[in-house]
Amino acid sequence: MYSVKLGLKSLWRERWINILSVLTIGVGFFVLAVVALLLLNLELASRRLPEKFTITVFLEDEISQRGILRIRKMIERATVVEKVDFISKEEAFEDLKKSLKDSAYILEGLDRNPLFPTFVIRLRKSAFDREKVEQLIKEIRGMRGVEDLVYGEEFLGVVSRFRVMIRLLSITLMGLFFVATVFVCYSTVKILFYRRKEEIEIFKLLGATGGFIRLPFLVEGSIIGLLGGLFSGGLLYGLFEISRRYVAGGVPIITGLNPVLTVVAILPVFGVVLGVIGSAIAVGRVKF
């Protein structure tokens, strides 16, 4: 208990250096949180893109009802598929007529319906996986009764590459900020440790254990991390509120940010963990 008190006292005694560290960590966390939220929202947005992505399967002209049912069952079994719609030759012709409106007369000269019966496949947004989609396309192509298949191959590739890039960027940024925060806590506690070197030497001679010497620094490091986290959480929440209230219509990228409040709550916990890690490295093993 006395060790905790020592940590709190030192926190106040060395308040200027501690405030500086809190601000550094806070601003770092804030930038990290904003970037992470933007990336997360881009990721979520990219997940919705497949909703607009459909596969059109053209069936052979003379396909039987059994053949249609067989293909439908096989498509529906695939995990990536959200919905399968069958459009018969006749329905397709009607749709075409409707879409041509006043120009529908051009179809009048046709002696037979030139369209194919088709399946329109919508993909599940939550389980969007390029490999699985491509596997499904390959399987459909290989099926008896399938004439042709059309899908946005390029679009699929772009979405997939975009998501991989976002993930890589997120991991890199998280890693960098993790190291930076640990380093700020490490250097602050190291300075405090050197400043109190004489006092620590006296403590050792009086019989203090490693734990007694280390604990105040861990308390101090964790509080610096906690305050840094709270500060960044406050900044983030402030930015969120301001953009929601005062910016006309809100800045969509911010007001639309998904779990702002969760992130605001997580930042202080994150701060404590990194603060403890940084100070533990700074104090190291106490030698007698």
Binding site: E199, E201, I202, K204, L205, L206, G207, T209, G210, F212
Partner: peptide
């Protein structure tokens, strides 16, 4: 063991020429 040193030191009182008091 290194970890036992603090407990041994608690059996020993030390008085230094330069006092080694905590000035604050």
């Amino acid at each position: 063991k290194m970890s036992s040193i603090p407990y041994l030191r608690r059996n020993i009182g030390i008085v230094f020429q330069d006092f080694k008091l905590l000035s604050n």
